[in-house]
Computed example of a mutant assay.
Amino acid sequence: MRSDDWHLTEDVDDFVARAGDFLCSRPALHTMPLTVTEKLRTRGADAYGAQAPVLGRLERAGKVRATFYRLRGLSLTPLTPEHADTLAAHLAALGHSIPHVSADHTTATAFAQAWQRHTGAAPTLSKRLRLYRLDSLTPPEPLPEGRGRVVGEQDHEQLVRWCGEFLDTVGEVPGVDADSWADSRFGDKHFTFWETPDGTPVSMAGSTSMVGRMIRVDPVYTPARHRGRGYAGAVTVEASRAALAAGATDVVLFADPADPTSNALYRRIGYVPVTEWAVYDFSAPAAEAG
């Protein structure tokens, strides 16, 4: 393979050594590969219940220009249409199976079209997200009564239940319970509750560990019976403030662009849009389906 080309590996440490500086150069935009590669590095592929990961970097003139990782699906940093086509052709030639692709909307669309050209697999837009980055934290006024507090071991049962409710609300699978918690996408996150003056938890926010001086707030959830009282904004502010106190220079979160309430909330407390995000699912090629 030429030096100016896509380089693939299953060695996470080698990938981080070669591409880590590139990923840290734009920590907000690269939030997903930063957290995923760190989890792979510290816990291995078993943390995702997946086969061995495939990681790739695009080099031009001796510098990394883009990366991808493939676990259950493919996740990309921003690519030009030309580079998306080159990657699609390369992965198709190697016989890779890709059930879905996730990236900024422009990149995901370019790759989806290229993958269809090279494999015949038809793409379907299955999810749209909006990536936000914290600019200047602005707590809502007035804050609801109560306080934020770090979630402790005594809260584990309620935390597992709320994360399961969150997954049901956003339509994600698989679900989560006490047995699957450690290997779920929540198992290594840090959580904050907002509780009323009598100590009743009413909302939660999770956050990733810091990597590349970036922390992602995820998830934010308020049970339906407690909504409309400002609790989500209050707990998001608490999680964001904790991230800044930990030394994060980039605090980010994803929101559903079709939900005007959450988008308005995040803007009010100081988050600004970075990019639109998209996930495309791929159907089996006609010959394979037949």
Rank of each mutant, 00 (worst) to 15 (best):
V220C: 07
Q113S: 09
V12K: 00
D259N: 15
Y266P: 08
R229Q: 13
M214E: 10
V36W: 11
P99E: 14
D46N: 08
V173S: 14
E172G: 04
K39D: 15
P197L: 12
E153K: 09
L143C: 06
G20H: 04
Y266C: 05
W115S: 04
A243L: 01
M214A: 10
A284Q: 12
G247M: 01
A286F: 12
Q51D: 14
Q158T: 13
D14G: 11
L58C: 06
R117W: 12
T236E: 10
S262F: 03
A287C: 12
I269Y: 02
A245T: 13
K63G: 10
G120P: 10
S209A: 12
C163D: 06
L55D: 05
F282H: 05
V150T: 14
G206K: 00
A289G: 08
A239L: 02
F111A: 05
H118E: 15
S184R: 01
D46R: 09
V237W: 00
T275Q: 08
K39N: 15
W6G: 05
I215C: 04
R2Y: 06
T261K: 10
L74Q: 02
L129Y: 05
T222W: 00
T275K: 01
S136T: 14
L34E: 00
A224I: 08
E10R: 15
L167N: 15
A122N: 09
D11M: 09
V64M: 04
P140A: 13
D168V: 09
Y132T: 01
P285H: 06
S203Q: 08
G247E: 00
A89T: 15
Q154Y: 01
A52K: 13
Y48R: 06
D281Y: 10
R149S: 05
S184H: 03
R117Y: 10
F282Q: 07
D135N: 13
Q116L: 10
D14A: 14
L137V: 06
R65S: 11
A88N: 07
Y280E: 02
S75M: 09
R161M: 11
F186V: 09
F22N: 03
P33F: 05
G175C: 12
G49E: 06
V16R: 15
D177T: 03
